[in-house]
């Protein structure tokens, strides 16, 4: 009898524990839904008023103007897209080179420090990067291209590149580290040199992981606000060159939310929704790739 009571008690405890854990899991998952709902609710007045079309048809962004209010978001979408792509284009070769060096060339001590520095770089607050961009990158751009404002697409791209560099470098490192040693042995057994082994064997095998890093970098750069507010110049326009100022969506929201009223505010919520959607697509693509890729390496 005593033992059966013990069993029913432990079952009961198990059920309660499970229930509590499920509740917490629900809370963390539900937060995202709540966030989406709030964004949507905030954006609703603009959607209801049919302003969404103006996002893409209006030429300019001047929501506060009394005489000629315009709500064109295209300049800012372009700004976000350009600065994000530029950042990844700058960070990918450097990050990949660093990962290859780390895996195939660096002596162990140097490799360990290389990794530590990258990990440290990941933790640097973005406002510090923005600050550094303002102090170092912008003046450097002014020296290269005098007569330009300095705060520009290029400045934003460089600062963002530095921010996502460790992300790309570390994911690439992990991907290269995960290349099965049997493949490297096969390469060695066939008399392939180090360069050929890296280019033809290791990189193709690590491609999935490297791509994940790139997408994570894209998502991070797209959502970054603080650093771009400081160095991009904040003029909503389609840049004619790398040296023109731009204003990404994130900057717009950060700069205007403080004083925006009714309909203007709803538009900013819309912008936030668009941003969230883009990030969700990127993250969704990453997990889709993870599931779809890897047909299995070697083995019977």
């Amino acid at each position: 009898m005593a033992s059966s009571r013990n069993i029913s008690l432990s079952r009961c405890v198990d059920r309660v524990t499970g229930g509590v854990l499920a509740l917490f899991a629900l809370v963390s998952g539900g937060t995202v839904l709540l966030l989406l709902w709030n964004l949507f609710a905030g954006a609703w007045p603009a959607i209801e008023a049919g302003r969404l079309g103006a996002f893409f048809t209006d030429a300019k962004w001047q929501p506060g103007s009394q005489r000629d209010p315009q709500f064109g978001m295209v300049t800012m979408l372009a700004g976000s897209a350009l600065v994000t792509v530029l950042a990844v284009a700058l960070a990918l070769p450097v990050g990949l080179a660093s990962a290859i060096f780390h895996r195939f060339y660096a002596p162990p001590l140097l490799a360990r420090w290389n990794r530590r520095i990258m990990e440290l770089l990941i933790g640097v607050p973005s406002v510090i990067f923005g600050f550094w961009g303002l102090m170092v990158v912008v003046p450097a751009i002014l020296r290269i291209a005098p007569g330009t404002p300095g705060q520009s697409l290029l400045a934003g791209g460089v600062v963002l590149a530095l921010m996502i560099l460790p992300l790309i470098a570390l994911t690439s490192q992990a991907a290269l580290q995960a290349v099965p040693s049997s493949l490297l042995q096969a390469a060695a057994g066939l008399g392939l040199g180090r360069a050929r082994t890296i280019v033809s064997v290791a990189l193709p095998a690590a491609r999935g992981g490297i791509t994940t890093g790139v997408f994570l970098g894209l998502a991070r750069a797209l959502g970054e606000t603080m650093a771009v507010v400081l160095v991009c110049g904040n003029i909503p326009q389609i840049p004619g060159s790398l040296f023109d100022p731009i204003r990404p969506i994130t900057s717009t929201i950060a700069l205007e939310m403080g004083y925006a009223t009714a309909s203007h505010k709803a538009l900013l919520f819309c912008a936030g929704l668009v941003l969230m959607l883009c990030t969700a697509l990127l993250v969704g693509w990453i997990s889709f790739r993870k599931n779809a890729a890897n047909p299995g390496i070697g083995g019977a």
């Binding site: 099965p180 049997s182 493949l183 042995q185 096969a186 390469a187 060695a188 057994g189 066939l190 008399g191 033809s200 064997v201 193709p204 095998a205 047909p295 390496i297 070697g298 083995g299 019977a300």
Partner: peptide
């Protein structure tokens, strides 16, 4: 060049994927 002249087949098949 040596490994071209002296090839090897391993225990587990290891074709490049």
């Amino acid at each position: 060049a040596l490994r071209r002249r002296v090839g090897i087949v391993f225990q587990r098949p290891n074709p490049f994927p």
